[in-house]
Amino acid sequence: MAVDIRNKDQFARLWNANTATDLMAEIFDCHKSRIYHYAKKHDLRPRDPKGKVIEIPKAEFQKLWTSDLSLAEIAEQMRCAVHTVDRLSEYFGLGARPDRKQVVVDQGKIPNISGASFWTPERDRRVRAAAGRYQAVAELAAELGVATTKVLARWHRLRVAA
């Protein structure tokens, strides 16, 4: 008979002992994806790709979280996946990341790149001013009456040409 997975103490003991998820799934008679679900539900520390519980102090993680590093750079430094970094922020109750330094966009000469006649130099300036930030790109796309993906694609072309 399977052990009740709602037994947080036994589940936490196995999780914190770095027991393989396959073995835990066998013990609790469930699929291994449910093991990750219950680890999150019981608010247990995330694990790295090798299945080891990440033992990072809150202060050290908070310093990384508030730094100018991207989530991918934090994950690389901690040797874990990006979604694990997000889970750690939830675990420590850090909330959303503070605004990081914005990339200063050179509004000087806009390069002349090929494309539809729709993209005038003025529209290209506005695309560059959005700086690839999703909110700004979405607002500009709505204002111009085009898909967000088209504005984002144009921004990438302008960024590469600069």
Rank of each mutant, 00 (worst) to 15 (best):
Q135C: 03
Q107Y: 07
D9W: 00
A142V: 00
F28W: 08
K109A: 07
G132H: 08
T149L: 12
K50Y: 12
Q135E: 14
D9L: 06
V105H: 03
P49T: 11
M24K: 07
W119F: 07
S89N: 04
T149E: 13
V82S: 01
M1H: 11
T84P: 01
L69G: 03
C80D: 01
E73V: 08
Q10V: 09
D9Y: 03
G93S: 10
Q102E: 15
S114I: 02
R159H: 12
Q77N: 11
L94K: 06
E90K: 13
T120M: 03
Q102F: 11
S70E: 15
A75W: 01
T149C: 08
E90D: 15
A141E: 04
A153M: 09
M1E: 09
V104C: 00
R79F: 10
I54M: 07
F28N: 01
A129D: 11
S70P: 10
V127Y: 06
A136H: 13
D86I: 12
A39H: 04
V85I: 11
I54F: 00
K8T: 06
Q107I: 08
H83L: 07
E60R: 14
L71A: 10
L94W: 10
V151Y: 07
T21L: 13
A162C: 04
M78Y: 09
A147G: 14
H31Y: 12
A39T: 04
P57N: 10
A129V: 01
R128K: 13
R6D: 12
V104S: 08
F28E: 02
A142I: 00
G93F: 11
F11Q: 03
V137P: 05
K8A: 09
R97I: 12
W155G: 01
V3T: 11
C80S: 07
Q107D: 07
W155L: 03
G93Q: 08
G51M: 08
A130F: 04
A59C: 02
A2Q: 10
G51R: 07
D4R: 09
A136P: 00
A81C: 00
L14I: 00
N18C: 15
D22Q: 12
F28I: 03
W65Y: 14
D43E: 14
V82E: 07
Q107K: 12
W155V: 02
H42G: 00
I27D: 02
S33D: 14
E55N: 13
Y91Q: 07
L140R: 05
D106R: 09
L71E: 11
K150V: 06
R154V: 01
F118W: 13
R128V: 10
A136T: 10
E73I: 07
R123L: 12
L44R: 06
R34Y: 13
E26A: 12
